[in-house]
Amino acid sequence: MMIIQIICSYLATIGFGIIVNIPHRALNSCGWVGVLGWVTYLVIKMANGGTMLANAVAALAIGLSSIFMARRLKMPMILFNIPSLVPLVPGGQAYKAVRNFAVGNDLAAISNLVQVAMIAGAIAMGFFVSELAARTYFRITVKH
């Protein structure tokens, strides 16, 4: 089961990378960043950590590893974190919200929307922490 998830997340990340035209050289490493993010998400979810924590920590893992890859390959960081982020997008909740709005079930739709907003916030939080960690690290190690 886990192997299927890993293969799928690798392919999905590379596929989205092709859609936004990232350089060929970055495709492979980008795929692995995506796998790392999705596995982190799954593991925390399986350990009953909750959706928000899983999204935040997965975004943190993606942020840190894409900073690492960007330094190693000397390429901009967004090449790695944009495609890797795609599996975390709250598609299911957004779909439920739209569906409930369409059939006139407004209260359920709003609760779904709140979930979408909270997941988006959790992902943003993860990225923020990773950026903060990277900046602090480089400030300490690199003398200007």
């Binding site: 293969i7 590379i14 596929g15 795609v86």
Partner: peptide
């Protein structure tokens, strides 16, 4: 690529 993204994410 779009087909792969759709199918893999659905799984």
């Amino acid at each position: 690529a779009a087909v792969i993204v759709s199918v893999t994410l659905m799984i």
